[in-house]
């Protein structure tokens, strides 16, 4: 077919029969496809992504340090209607102290009572003015289990919330456990420069058993010393902790004093432990 004399070639026309055969092939293929789509429509859309089936559930936020319930005053709280105290209805285990962390950039207070008109205002507790970015003192609340105390901000009376005193072991996500001190490796700690160990420094009494909790989604350790030390990990070492795992550090054998520690996986994560 390389070199034809084109002028005399007959013109080949598509015939109706040939066209019909072509259409039948297309139509049958489409009909088979449509049958599969219609019958399998839900089946092909039924399985959740494999990654969600193999990954552990996101670990619940770790309980804050023993005996202290932390309530945040969110950034932007001073805008009327914006979210303000978080959690909004805090469950405070009986005997816990409460600290309000002001994450906003203006003054706020947490003052018991329903508002400025309340005759009982600030009787139960009052943080006084808390600067933006600072935390209140540890407030002791003297109330029975089951009591709900409304409180508000004296500077912005539309910021209102309440807290409830609960049994010590009901603390849950917002309460503190009455057990030993806790060291939390924060979510996102693996990013260089991000907050990592919390609290830092952690102060404990000699003999306390520290619970270390990895709230991040990658492996971490808390290993005594510094990355360059020959005796790193001699004093204490949690070993590799998976995401969400916990480990313990027993301080019974440690001399009182200040200990540096770091993460073997991310050596830029460093913290201090003080034993009194």
């Amino acid at each position: 077919m390389a070199e034809h004399e084109h002028k005399d070639e007959p013109v080949l026309l598509t015939s109706p029969g040939r066209m019909a055969r072509g259409i039948i092939i297309v139509a049958v293929t489409l009909a088979i496809g449509a049958a599969v789509v219609v019958t399998q429509f839900d089946n092909f859309f039924s399985q959740s992504a494999p990654v969600t089936r193999i990954q552990p559930e996101t670990p619940p936020p770790p309980p804050p340090a023993a005996g202290v319930t932390r309530i945040a005053i969110l950034a932007g709280s001073s805008v009327q209607g914006a979210p303000d105290y978080d959690p909004d209805d805090a469950q405070v285990p009986v005997g816990n102290k409460v600290v309000w962390e002001n994450r906003d950039n203006v003054f706020h207070t947490a003052t018991s009572g329903t508002g400025p008109e309340d005759a009982e205002m600030s009787v139960a507790f009052d943080t006084g003015l808390v600067n933006g970015g600072e935390s209140s003192a540890e407030i002791t609340i003297d109330a029975d289990v089951g009591t709900t105390i409304p409180y508000f901000c004296q500077v912005h009376p539309y910021m209102t919330s309440q807290l409830t005193i609960v049994e010590a072991e009901e603390g849950g996500a917002t309460g503190g456990s009455a057990e030993g001190p806790t060291l939390t490796i924060l979510a996102g700690a693996s990013a260089q420069g991000a907050p990592d160990y919390d609290p830092d420094p952690l102060t404990v009494s000699a003999g306390d058993v520290i619970t270390v909790r990895n709230a991040d989604n990658v492996f971490h350790t808390a290993t005594s010393g510094a990355p360059s030390d020959a005796d790193a990990g001699q004093a204490f070492d949690t070993d590799l902790m998976e995401a969400g795992a916990t480990a313990t550090i027993d301080t019974a054998d440690l001399e009182p004093g200040e200990y540096d520690y770091f993460c073997l996986v991310h050596p830029y994560m460093v913290g201090k432990l003080q034993i009194e």
Binding site: F44, S46, S48, A49, T52
Partner: peptide, 12 residues
């Protein structure tokens, strides 16, 4: 597409 999309449609 990683976490929520249903399979096997997504893989297909």
């Amino acid at each position: 597409s990683i976490l929520s999309a249903k399979g096997p449609a997504a893989e297909m």
